[in-house]
Design a binder for these strands. Structure first.
Lengths: 121, 121
DNA sequence: GTTACCACTAACCTTTTGTTTACTACTAAC
DNA sequence: GTTAGTAGTAAACAAAAGGTTAGTGGTAAC
């Protein structure tokens, strides 16, 4: 059983630490899904909750707060109108996540196709 | 407050579903770190536990089982030697994760640098 | 006049995840 | 003979994450 080594030990530790830093911000079940929904133009709380199937209001609220703290979105309150409308707008910084989202979504899609293939054969 | 829309609503749902499929396999605190350690040439249980700081034997054992079920590694037992040695070898299929790992590690690295900058200024 | 929408929050509960300690049984080094 | 390494597992517990239900107060549609 042979395999090629992709990184040195030092690079391994560096990679693990970097992924750790990324997961600190993006980890958990919901954060990336929320970011995708924001990228696709959803801005409102209830819109987001409808788009992201299965998330509860409590969890969505908490996750949005954390994403705001990490500089990935801005909470904009339109207090002048009734009912008061709140918009969640992704920041310029959040667009740096595009590669991450793309890589994960691509892999997830291919993985699903692979599973379907192995069941159908 | 303006933003460009990156995906249509249909693409949004597709992306969310794909990321969901990916996270089903890769989600949680440890799986990607284990994969990085495997990519860097670690093959043994205790080696992995030493490399991945903070993981307990129980959790490592569970995660390895799940990664094996999902076809990302093979458990190879060398029963002929004493003490019996077990090797965890990443599969060919696991190499399709390279882009995911790279994207996340790159983002994590940049994010850390950004944090350090904003503290030092 | 009842229902639904808006954007949440509080309290409580369950599930998932992870930790700690102790243990297996054998080997090799000091 | 004590310690450390080999690869784990069992049991008991703690912490983190997530879900459920109910409710706020105002507006607008049926």
């Amino acid at each position: 059983m042979k395999q090629k080594v992709m990184y040195s030990e030092v690079q391994c530790t560096k990679h693990i630490n970097s992924v750790e830093d990324a997961l600190y911000v993006l980890g958990g079940k919901w954060k990336l899904r929320i970011i995708i929904a924001l990228f696709s133009g959803q801005t409102r709380f209830n819109e987001l909750q409808r788009t992201i199937k299965g998330i509860s209001a409590r969890v969505l609220s908490n996750e949005l707060k954390q994403l705001e703290l990490n500089g990935l979105l801005t909470r904009v309150v339109h207090a002048e109108q009734t009912p008061i409308v709140v918009e969640y707008i992704y920041t310029e910084y959040a667009t740096t996540l595009k590669d991450v989202v793309t890589a994960l979504a691509d892999w997830g899609e291919k993985h699903k196709k692979k599973l379907q293939l192995s069941y159908n054969v």
